[in-house]
């Protein structure tokens, strides 16, 4: 399209370009706002002072201390595992759920939609205590079943740990994916799925080949939200985790309560840097794969 030749068009197009330019500046500004605390904590992770008050010189002491702190490193590993599994399960449950609720007229559809909404609305302490009561109530039954099924040599025990933590995290994470995907499906052109179906694709193939690529941006943003929430949640996790499945936010919470410790700045910086690098690598792999 050659805008310059038609004067009537230049004005509004100029207007839109200006709007986009302004939005770009705004984005930069908001990003600065978002990164201000991050920049600060990275700076302080190299500060010789124990307190985040004055600059007392450069040091890598906190990084050394962090690496030597076994509970912290273990919590980081736990967290990555829990957030990763949570994200995958949430994406699967949330995306299929959103698509099904979008494309079929289920009986009691409103009720199902309202139920999905409950984990978003319920206060964390209520969810944590509710799940704790549930898990402790069913544990003897499940363990009895495991013992009778696998005999006396059975070592598998149902107790608070990784499984319960992941269950809890998926419960409050998958609705985020569902809501994000549903918003996108709402204005998806139904003709696309129709065309696929008309061309003889089964609904499942149509979903996988046509719908999923179309809603991919929403799936990615839903996955990001799920991962972020799982990496950040403290209170529900407190109630459902066991000693070996303690997550990083919980470990940080326990350590930071009595005032900031630069070691925690250091581990945050490392984690952020590591994930950023991983993402860049993943993007590279994806592009090479094409």
């Amino acid at each position: 399209m050659n805008d310059a030749t038609t004067p009537t068009r230049t004005r509004p197009f100029f207007g839109m370009a200006l709007v986009n330019r302004l939005c770009g500046w705004w984005t930069a500004l908001v990003l600065a706002f978002l990164y201000l605390p991050l920049a600060l904590l990275i700076a302080y992770s190299f500060n010789a002072s124990r307190l985040n008050v004055v600059w007392e010189g450069f040091t890598v002491r906190w990084y050394r201390e962090m690496l030597a702190n076994e509970p912290l490193i273990r919590a980081l590993k736990n967290s990555v595992l829990i957030a990763g599994v949570t994200t995958i399960l949430s994406v699967v449950i949330g995306t299929t759920g959103a698509w099904l609720l979008h494309s079929y007229r289920y009986r009691f559809r409103r009720l199902w939609e309202a139920l999905v909404f409950v984990p978003i609305a319920v206060p964390e302490v209520i969810m944590g205590i509710g799940l704790l009561i549930l898990f402790t109530a069913v544990a003897p039954g499940i363990n009895g079943f495991l013992d009778s099924a696998f005999g006396a040599a059975n070592e598998t025990r149902f107790a608070l740990g990784f499984v319960t933590t992941i269950i809890a995290h998926v419960t409050f994470c998958f609705p985020l994916v569902l809501v994000a995907v549903q918003a996108r499906l709402a204005d998806l052109d139904p003709a696309m799925e129709e065309a696929a179906l008309d061309l003889g694709a089964t609904p499942l193939v149509a979903f996988w080949r046509v719908i999923v690529p179309c809603i991919m941006p929403a799936i990615i943003s839903g996955a990001l939200m799920a991962f972020t929430l799982s990496m950040d949640e403290v209170l529900v996790t407190y109630f459902v985790c066991g000693p070996e499945s303690k997550t990083l936010p919980l470990e940080i919470y326990d350590n930071v309560r009595k005032g900031l410790n630069p070691m925690l700045n250091a581990i945050s910086a490392v984690f952020v840097a590591a994930t950023a690098i991983l993402v860049v690598i993943a993007e590279r792999i994806r592009r090479i794969g094409r």
Partner: peptide, 19 residues
């Protein structure tokens, strides 16, 4: 840009708030 938006939120709520 999407990644850039989310990365600061992987630092832990308390750490960000203390910052």
């Amino acid at each position: 840009l999407l990644m850039l938006v989310m990365i600061p939120f992987w630092t832990g709520f308390l750490i960000r708030t203390y910052a």
